[in-house]
Design a protein around this nucleic acid. Structure first.
Length: 900
RNA sequence: GCCACGGUGGAGAAAUCGGUAAACUCAGCAGACUUAAAAUCUGCCGGCCACCAGGCCUUGCGGGUUCAAGUCCCGCCCGUGGUACCA
């Protein structure tokens, strides 16, 4: 055995042992219980960053731990290989996204292997591989048949200079990131998946996930946003002589509220039919505050609303305002924080209950894609409406009062929006009713007028899956002049994505690929055009976990999927708490309803890793676009307090903005490559430090201060192994040990108990601490009869506790010291009762809640015995000073508190 | 803006059910070993007061509940994640 700790030798030796024995290849043929441990698959951005190391080490620690606990453990890996960064890299380097992606995969795979993760590489997949994405296409067609997939208008960010659709990430302060041009909203047809059909189940089955963090379930529930309210209409008649072919009126309700399934069974896709013109109609709105309906003083519609379009035909000012509304990004955060503006349409609608005429405004804060694209305005009881009414001098009518509160038009007060405590006033027959009674009565009245009814509403919107991009899974549809939109027949799948396009930033290059676009209609055989939109990459990651279970299957999934699924432990960043996890849950439920799988939820237990953060540096370029600098490309000056005062680029010495800390990402160029850490200290140190730095769920600002400490620890572990090896191992700890030895042994077993408890809580930082404390105890082990046996026993515990975190050193030490063949086949250690036993214990002594001393009592002593010892103690006597204690609180095993 | 989470020494952090605040580690300081350096080992290491014994204060800020609060409740401030086309 080597005397010095040589990480690279040890790691190569361990990894070649694992490769030779195919240690981590698993199958369904096992009599052990299965354990499917899955980490979220990485986007192949080029190099691993610290967030990956953290994520995959957590998964590996769990996998190895469960394996030693006797489970048949599957831990696969793959690549989320489609997506935007590949197109950006292509533009920058003139390399096709395919080549860039596969090169990155090769490099990152080698990095993952060098970290020694216990992965079954036979199951590796890349989502850009046709063998994978053909099943996206196949399943999309099944969704069409079920009426889940459909087509409707979507609103996207449009860069007028590059003439291209921008992702939200590419819009910075309302401008295109490359061109600096003001972004516009543009309407395009797109494909949607009706996730709202599953809204109720997605919400209620959160209760079937006790192994999920409460915070994630809360976020999902809020996102789905089930509310009960009233959907009702303001009837109207348009002035005579209005344009006869304007699409307003009765159709507004059907076009906006009911998604049109594009395909039922064999039927051919049909577009949304042109709406018949109509002079009278209903303006539909939804509200959770129907009790305030008598306080409506205006209505507001979205800029894209048919009534707005209609009114704009005769009003250039309104047309200009609607144009202005269409500027800016489509992001919710922007919409919510922008200045609320409006303009009257000149149209009025009729209040359904009072018959009053109500002005219709266009509001820039009303979203066409949410509900019916219109809202009622009750300024007295909605903060946003209040501000809007004050700004435009609209009437404010109080219709809810609370005892002891006085209403004033001067400013908003929180109680105006309170629905718990109030009762209706100024509301005619509803006066005096509380919230629930008023809503029920008003819903009834609206229903009898045929102008509305109580309705359950979800905040959740259908999932738009169309992307006007090249590097993604082609949507398997064909557009034929005669037959309309026709699905690609199953036997013609997959629709292959050409591998050699290089995007140039101006739209989807597929549009220019005649060999891709030109095809024949599967129905009539005439020349037709292929759909060039590709799928959202969240489609790819919505079911990959099921495919890992069935590598090489000639179907989407097979029986092996039902063996391994659901995932027993899913691990990934908290940033996926809503979208990815919700889409995967939805996809699973549709697969179940198609009879493909027999489970309803994909992830039984979820561990959400905190983000690894690093500093972000950026600069505006001449065009007004934005450019990011990596932390090692800038020079930073700090003040005395350590605050950053100035940053300059090393390249040109000019100033750079400091944008604070944020999650490590390719686009912000603030990722830290773990490679130098691995090269300098080895994989075990990198893994150990990552686990030791903080608990997994916690956000972690990156700093490599302290890596050295992990390395020193492993070197001491190795030295301890070497000295035990030299001194000779000894079995069988004697039943009678000298006091000092027994105490040290007890300490190690206590630490083991702590480590096992912490492993159950995924608190790996304190498991690493416990291992360090064990080594400290071993190094201080006193002399005495049986020392060699105690050392052997305790070091064996330490190696096994360490093995999931630092598997290489554990593998070699276990074998070298002759504990057994492979530490992975060893049984997980449990503390021994005999080692833990003690006669006396120390309790804390408090006087008036303050620490004043300690007392020794027999283990298991009853409360009154402890109380007597405490009262008799010198410290107590001193503080009592002759008086009697007012109260004595005894917490067995912990403390005694005496109240004087 | 809205939803969720977090804030403890110079730094990363620990404190399991409301019960000893700061375990373990880094950085720093002092010492041992050494011709020297590195490595290693030993001790100290929140603040104030005190000769000592010890005392007082301290978990972002302000209140509250309790024998006892980092932990529970109320109100703020700051940071991070998400906000539906980054993944």
């Amino acid at each position: 055995m080597q005397e010095k700790y040589q990480a690279s030798d040890i790691e190569h030796a361990a990894q070649s042992d694992w490769n030779a024995a195919q240690t981590f290849g698993v199958s369904e043929a096992s009599d052990k219980p299965k354990y499917y441990c899955l980490s979220m698959l990485p986007y192949p951005s080029g190099k691993l960053h610290m967030g990956h190391v953290r994520n995959y080490t957590i998964g590996d620690v769990l996998s190895r731990h469960y394996r030693m606990r006797g489970f048949n453990v599957l831990q696969p890996m793959g690549w989320d290989a489609f997506g935007l960064p590949a197109e950006n890299a292509a533009m920058q380097n003139n390399v096709p996204p395919a080549k860039w992606t596969y090169d990155n995969i090769a490099y990152m795979k080698q990095q993952l292997q060098s970290l020694g993760f216990a992965l079954d590489w036979k199951r590796e997949l890349a989502t850009c591989d046709p063998d994978y994405y053909r099943w996206n296409q196949w399943f999309f067609l099944r969704m069409l048949e079920k009426g889940i997939a459909y087509k409707k208008t979507q609103i996207v960010n449009w860069d007028p200079v590059d003439q291209t659709v921008l992702a939200n990430e590419q819009v910075i302060e309302g401008r295109g990131w490359r061109t600096g041009a003001l972004v516009e909203k543009r309407e395009l047809p797109g494909y949607y998946l009706a996730i709202t059909q599953y809204a109720d189940e997605l919400l209620s089955s959160l209760d079937d996930l006790p192994g999920w963090p409460e915070r994630v379930k809360t976020m999902q529930a809020n996102w789905i946003g089930k509310s009960t309210g009233v959907r009702f209409a303001f009837p109207y008649d348009l002035p005579a002589g209005a344009s006869a072919n304007t699409a307003v009126g009765a159709d507004v309700e059907s076009r906006l509220s009911k998604a049109e399934p594009l395909l039922r069974r064999e039927a051919v896709l049909h577009e949304t039919p042109a709406s018949p013109p109509s002079q009278s109609g209903k303006l539909w709105v939804y509200t959770t505050r129907a009790d305030t309906i008598m306080g409506v003083t205006f209505c507001a519609v979205a800029a894209e609303h048919p009534l707005a379009t209609y009114a704009a035909k005769t009003s250039p000012e309104l047309a200009a305002f609607i144009d202005e509304c269409k500027r800016g990004s489509v992001m919710e955060a922007d919409m919510a924080t922008m200045e609320k503006k409006g303009m009257p349409t000149g149209l009025t609608v009729t209040h359904p209950l009072s018959g009053e005429q109500i002005d219709v405004w266009v509001g820039n804060y009303v979203l066409m894609s949410y509900g019916d694209g219109a809202v009622m305005g009750v300024p007295a009881h909605d903060e946003r409406d209040f501000a809007f009414a004050k700004k435009y001098n609209l009437p404010i009518k109080q219709v809810v009062a609370i005892e002891g509160e006085s209403f004033s038009l001067d400013g908003w007060q929180d109680w105006y929006g309170d629905k718990q405590r109030g009762h209706c006033i100024n509301s005619g027959k509803y006066d005096g009713m509380d919230y629930a009674a008023a809503v029920a009565a008003i819903a009834d009245d609206l229903k009898s007028l045929n102008l509305g009814e109580a309705k359950v509403h979800f905040r959740l919107r259908d999932w738009g899956v169309s992307r006007q991009r090249y590097w993604g899974c082609p949507i398997p549809l064909i557009h034929c002049e005669a037959c309309g939109t026709v699905p690609v027949p199953d036997d013609q799948l997959p629709v292959l994505l050409p591998q050699d396009c290089v995007p140039d930033g101006s739209g989807n290059p597929l549009n220019k690929r005649e060999d891709f676009v030109n095809c024949v209609c599967p129905k009539c055989g005439k020349p037709a055009r292929r759909e060039t939109d590709t799928m959202d990459t969240f489609v790819d990651s919505s079911w990959y976990y099921a495919r890992y279970c069935a590598p090489g299957a000639k179907t989407m999934v097979d029986a092996r999927t039902n063996y391994w699924m659901p995932v027993d432990q899913y691990i990934g960043g908290i940033e996926h708490a809503i979208l990815h996890l919700l889409y995967s849950r939805f996809w699973t439920k549709v697969m179940r309803d198609c009879g493909l799988v027999n489970y309803a939820e994909p992830f039984k237990n979820l561990l959400t890793q905190g983000m690894v953060l690093n500093h972000i540096f950026s600069r505006r370029n001449e065009k007004g676009g934005i450019e990011y600098f990596a932390p090692d490309e800038v020079e930073i000056k700090h003040d005395d307090g350590g605050r950053i005062v100035s940053v300059t680029a090393k390249s040109d010495g000019l100033a750079v903005n400091y944008d604070g800390v944020g999650t490590m990402s390719k686009s912000k160029r603030n990722g830290v490559d773990p490679q130098s850490l691995i090269d300098q200290y080895g994989a075990d140190t990198a893994r150990f430090f990552m686990m030791f730095a903080a608990p997994p769920e916690q956000t972690l600002e990156w700093s490599d201060t302290g890596v050295e400490g992990g390395f020193r620890f492993l070197r001491r572990v190795w030295a301890m192994g070497h000295s035990i090896h030299t001194a000779g191992v000894a079995m069988n700890v004697p039943t009678k040990l000298p006091e000092g030895l027994a105490a040290s042994r007890r300490e190690v077993h206590l630490l083991l108990r702590q480590a096992n408890y912490d492993l159950g809580k995924f608190q790996f930082n304190t498991v690493a601490s416990a291992a360090m404390k064990m080594l400290n105890a071993l190094e201080k082990m006193p002399a005495g009869d049986g020392r060699a046996a105690v050392m052997t026993e305790c070091f064996g515990i330490l190696i096994r506790v360490l093995s999931p975190i630092t598997p290489h050193i554990a593998h070699v030490l276990w074998h070298e010291l002759g504990y057994g063949d492979d530490v992975l086949n060893a049984t997980w250690p449990e503390p021994l009762e005999a080692a833990l036993a003690q006669d006396e214990e120390e309790l804390v002594l408090q006087i008036n809640g303050k620490l004043r001393g300690a007392i020794k009592v027999k283990v298991g002593a009853d409360k009154s015995a402890i109380e007597q010892i405490a009262l008799a103690s010198e410290v107590t006597q001193k503080y009592l000073d002759g008086q009697t204690a007012k109260k004595v609180i005894v917490v067995p095993g912990r403390l005694v508190n005496i109240v004087v």
